Structure formats: structure tokens, C-alpha cells
Computed example of a mutant assay.
Amino acid sequence: MSFRQMVLAVVKALGGFGVARILTAPGLRIICYHGISVHDEHRFQPKLFMREDTFLERMAYLKRHDYPVLSLNEALALMYQKSLPPRAVVITFDDGWLGTGTKAAPALREHGFPSTVYVTTRDAVNGMPVFNVALRYLIWKGRGKALDMYCLGLAPGTIVLNSPDEREHAACRISEASEQGNDQERRALLMKLAEILEVDWNPDGDNPLFRLMTMEQLAQLPAQGMNVQLHTHRHRLPIGDRDGVESEITDNRVVLERIADRPLRHLCYPSGEFHPSQFPWLRALGIESATTCLSGFNYPHTERLELRRFLDGENIAQVEFEAELSGFLELMRKFRRAVGRR
């Protein structure tokens, strides 16, 4: 247990979380999840992927402590009407990873919890593993080995994959070199990299790693209480490029309209990257709300296109999760902002 976690455990034992729940009751808590592991992804990227058991523990905690879990539509409507129930929670998922449908959806259905899934559609349509994530996974699996870039058709040079910085350097070089490649060329590159690093990797058939749900699987989500919404087509939203923004939203919407059961008016910014200059463009495209990766609760004065979320993952201990949901960490954020203004 880290020092931070020990401090939070003491605060909880002394009743601090209970006090925080009362003081922050009006704030809307929006939780962000990405993938639920189907293998060892949580060991590779604990911020991005979570064990199924951890997710089940989180949902059981929300149920046990009577946090009202609302749909995004209902929560936002009530928040801006200033009639939100105390400690209200919205559950969201980014990207549309396979584990969201196979592992998270049954748990949510069991508890009667609605949720929103922001889907990026390019890789859902093409059926390929998400390249940049799969690439880094293979390099992580090959950690400690020496990678000769020449064997991948790149400029000669060997990178020893010992440290996170060295592995990221290798991933960036390979990613940059593959930017102009098509899906099949990228698939071949992943297979070649797996061969060089001696990693068991088969991107075909039933391999579920780093795949998004198929359109058929996504089509089943609304019946399970999961509202499908926008996350761009290519997982990017160009800053300073109105045509690029319009293209990403329009392409994303065209694909999702085939399976969505509600209007596609809510957006999640890819990688949390956005700029207020994009707000008028998004409103013109019919976007009513957009979620960020900024920490914090949401209130009637919160900008609709700049909603705050709590990014949960395997890297977050249960006591940290409870500290966030109770509002104790929200109070700490407010305190730091107040001190910083002095």
C-alpha cells in the first residue's frame, strides 16, 4: 500500500469520506472506463485496462452504497435543471473494446446500471487490432530483448527494450514509419514484429486482444442498457481544422446510425484532447455534450462540451476509487485551487 493509499484509508476510517459525500452531494460523478481485460492487458496498460474482478468490485460498491446510477441523457437533463439526485453517477466506456461487451455489459445488466459507450468506428469496421496499442503490447512482451529496426525494413539501428523510454522510442519509430501503410501492411508489420521478438501473436481468427467490438456486437448493446455514442471515426479530432472535425464526426455518425437506438448527440474527445475553439463547430454538428479526461465533478455551471470524468483503471486502488466517488478528492482539488488563487 502506497503512502497516499494509507492516508486515504485513515481518512476513511475517521469518517472523512462520509462527510465528503454530504458536502459534494450535488456534483455529478462521471466514471470513465476503457477496456476490461480478456488476457493480460491490465498488466501491460493498467491505466487503460482493468481486470474483470476489479470491475465487478467497483459495480458492487456502487450498488452497496446506494449511488444512483443514471443514463447520461437523464443525468445531464437533471443536472442542468438543478434537480439531480444526491451523489448521482454516470458510467461511460471509451473506444468500444471487446471486453466492454463480453465482460462489463453482463455485470451492468445484473445491477440494472445504464451506461454510455463512446465508439471509435474505423477499427470496429475493419476488424483489425488497434494498431498503436497492439504495437506497444508486442514491444512490452519483448521487453529486455534487442530489436534490430533493419529487420522491420527501417533505418538500421538496434534498440534494447529495457526501459519504458526505450520501448516507447521503438514504438514511435515504428508507428511513424507505418503511417502511410494500409491495414494489411500494418497487420503484416505486427506479425513480423511478433516473430522477431518471439511473441505468440496471431491477429487472425479468435484472437480477442486489442480488438474493438464488431458492428454486430455493437448492435446488441442498446438492448443491454448501453447507449452507443460518438468517439470519432479515426480516434482523432483535429484542433484548428474545422473540415477535419466535421469529417470525423460525420463519418463516425454514419457508421453508428446503423445500430444506435438514440440520436447521436454526445461525444467523447479522443485521448481527451480538445480546444474551446472547436465548441462552435461541434454545436453546429448537433453535439449536445462532450466528455474530457479532466478530473472533477460536474455542476449546473459546467460547460456541456467540457464535462469532467474520473478515469478508473487497474492502477487505481479500491480506497482511491472510494475517495473519488465520495467526493473527498474533489474537495482536495477545490482546496488546492483556492490556495493557488491566493
Rank of each mutant, 00 (worst) to 15 (best):
P263K: 01
V255L: 06
H275W: 00
A194W: 03
H34K: 09
R308F: 10
D200N: 10
R187V: 10
S247A: 13
E57D: 05
R234D: 11
P280N: 04
G99A: 04
L307D: 05
A171G: 07
A219D: 10
G27I: 12
Q184S: 09
C32V: 15
F49M: 15
L56G: 11
L14W: 09
R304C: 12
L62Q: 09
E322H: 02
L285N: 08
A107I: 06
M191N: 08
H111Y: 03
E41N: 02
V69A: 04
L138F: 01
G244M: 02
R167S: 04
I30A: 06
Q224G: 09
P280M: 00
Y80W: 07
T92H: 05
R173N: 05
K63H: 08
M59P: 06
W281P: 07
G272W: 07
A124L: 12
N132T: 15
A20S: 11
E303F: 12
V339G: 08
G144F: 03
L305D: 00
L72H: 08
H266L: 15
R167T: 06
P222R: 00
R21I: 01
N182F: 03
D123G: 11
G101M: 08
A9W: 09
I239F: 06
S271T: 15
N182T: 10
M6W: 13
G101A: 01
Y269A: 07
P85K: 07
C268K: 04
D123Y: 14
L152T: 04
V7R: 06
S115I: 01
A20I: 11
L311G: 11
A134H: 00
R336Y: 13
E198F: 00
A170P: 08
E324G: 12
P300I: 07
E185V: 01
P270G: 02
L193T: 07
N73G: 14
L267V: 08
R87V: 09
W97M: 09
A171L: 03
V339T: 10
T121A: 09
A124F: 11
Y80S: 06
N227F: 06
L70V: 10
L161N: 00
V319K: 06
T102K: 09
L72N: 12
F17Y: 02
C172H: 15
F113H: 00
D95E: 05
